[in-house]
């Protein structure tokens, strides 16, 4: 139940947080929308002028923008299913009884990748994936695979980003799914294991229904983080070679920071934000418990 309290009290409790988020979250957005209607280039401030929806027209018809969007979607479509499959496997192993000490240790190690500074993850990739000095190629050599040019070849670089995303986020997915597994009432699980020897049947018919909330949470958060993905590719490949790893946030940063075309970058941002909000609304409707 909730209390009915005077409006003044509510305002006092909520006011500061709402005001703060409005100042840091909304004001810049409004400013971005305003700038997106201008030709506004930091190196040509003298030519600044109102251009209406011109920037939006340019973005919507710009193949580079949609290619970056497509690349971002592709990363999501490849990496997330692998993360879910591997994460589920890890979660199931950790969920089994026995070897408690070792499992606690493994759980602790799972915490590390997802907390790691994303920029450092990209730098680590540069060091470990180097064709000549990289330890990963050395390991591939042990099993008879020739050194792979991870950073220099467009396809390989994309694969490398996918691999690194999998490294960082599979543990996260595993822990979320493990939390989901722990919501399965133990009686039901035990009864099911007595009835069938097939782990698959137990998973499919007993555990899966309890995993649905976790899976949806994974999808929501991975979508948000993939759209935001900037630090790791930026420090690893800077979007290259060519534009093989230029994801949407990397593209916008380049337009704003290197072409100095803030108006265009703002238009791109607003379009991306619209896509984000539609997805967020959809997902949150689907899943999050509403405030009572």
């Amino acid at each position: 139940m909730s209390f009915r309290v005077p409006r003044r009290t509510i305002a006092a409790f909520l006011g500061p947080a709402v005001a703060a988020l409005a100042i840091v979250g909304i004001a810049p957005l409004v400013y971005a929308v305003w700038k997106s209607l201008h030709y506004f280039n930091l190196t040509k401030l003298a030519q600044q002028r109102f251009v209406g929806l011109e920037n939006y027209g340019a973005v919507l018809t710009d193949p580079v923008f949609w290619q970056a969007m497509g690349r971002t979607a592709l990363l999501f479509l490849i990496a997330v299913p692998i993360q879910i499959a591997l994460g589920l496997l890890i979660a199931l192993v950790l969920h089994r009884p026995g070897l408690t000490f070792w499992k606690t240790l493994t759980r602790l190690s799972l915490v590390l990748p997802m907390a790691t500074t994303y920029a450092v993850v990209g730098l680590l990739a540069q060091v470990m994936l180097n064709q000549k000095y990289g330890v990963i190629n050395q390991m591939l050599g042990w099993i008879g695979v020739d050194a792979i040019n991870f950073i220099g070849d467009p396809t390989n670089a994309f694969i490398a980003v996918v691999m690194w995303d999998i490294w960082q986020w599979t543990p996260f997915v595993a822990l979320v799914l493990l939390a989901g597994l722990s919501t399965v009432p133990p009686e039901i699980e035990e009864a099911a294991t007595l009835e069938t020897r097939s782990n698959w049947t137990v998973l499919r018919h007993v555990q899966l229904p309890f995993l649905i909330p976790s899976l949806v949470a994974v999808l929501i958060l991975r979508t948000a983080d993939t759209l935001k993905l900037f630090d790791m590719p930026f420090t690893m490949t800077r979007g290259g070679p060519g534009s093989a790893t230029e994801f949407i946030a990397v593209l916008i940063e380049r337009v704003g920071n290197r072409q100095f075309d803030i108006g265009m970058a703002a238009a791109q941002s607003v379009i991306m934000l619209a896509i984000t909000i539609v997805l967020a609304r959809l997902y949150i409707r689907l899943f999050y418990r509403e405030v009572r």
Partner: peptide
Amino acid sequence: FVSPVVLAFP
């Protein structure tokens, strides 16, 4: 869900 790149330039 909002990407920092949206806010950074403004």
